[in-house]
Simulated scan of single mutants.
Amino acid sequence: MQSRRQKRLFSILLVIGLIAGAIGAMLFALSQNINLFYTPGQLVQGLGEGKIKPDVGQRLRLGGMVVPGSVKRDATSLKVSFDLTDDSGEIATVEFEGILPDLFREGQGIVAQGSLKSATVLAATEVLAKHDEEYMPPEVAEAMKGIRHVPPSQLKQSERSSANYGG
């Protein structure tokens, strides 16, 4: 017959083992769904100190600027391909089938999500276009005509105190 201490120790070790197994299973399942972000330069040269390059077939996100003159559309379908570049000068190609966002245009920053088809070609399932940080909805722009807006960080101390107290 086992003593009470041995039963407690066995049950505690069993619970710890089950928790470790559950965490391991979750991490294994999540590793298939993690999307790493790369720029074209990182895609070609590698990411981090170890210069780790993604494997063909790996899901990832690729961000950069659309190279002017590189957009090629298929006349009979929604297939489109275009090149992306970043400040490193490296170029990666994105192939996408679907409707591109309204803000998509050459010279614009985009993020494409999909799987790597070859070392520098991404088969995208989704394309997101970045908007300019100066963007303002037309209604707001119309309402603000004639109003000069200065961010508080650019006001002098005397202007801040009068702006705060209306004096």
Rank of each mutant, 00 (worst) to 15 (best):
V127K: 03
K72A: 07
Q6I: 09
F37A: 11
L103E: 07
Q113E: 14
V121W: 02
P101D: 02
H131M: 15
V15C: 12
F96D: 02
Q32W: 12
T85G: 01
P137L: 00
L128C: 01
D132W: 11
L9N: 08
G64N: 05
A119D: 12
A75C: 00
E49F: 11
G114V: 01
Q154T: 08
G46H: 03
S3H: 09
R160T: 08
D83T: 03
A141P: 01
D74E: 12
L60K: 03
E159T: 08
F28I: 11
V111Y: 03
R59C: 07
P137C: 02
T39M: 09
N35K: 15
E142R: 12
Q154F: 15
L116Y: 00
R5F: 06
P151Y: 13
A112E: 00
Q32M: 11
L9Q: 11
G17N: 04
L62C: 04
R59Q: 12
L116Q: 01
G17T: 06
I99T: 14
V71P: 01
P138Y: 03
L62A: 02
K117V: 03
S88E: 06
R5Y: 07
K117R: 09
A119Q: 14
L128I: 15
A129K: 05
T76S: 14
A112N: 01
Q58D: 10
L14Q: 05
H149M: 14
F104M: 05
D86M: 04
H131F: 14
L128A: 13
D132V: 05
M65C: 04
K145M: 04
V150E: 12
Q45A: 15
Q2R: 15
R160M: 15
V94C: 00
V66Q: 01
K79Y: 05
K117D: 04
F37S: 08
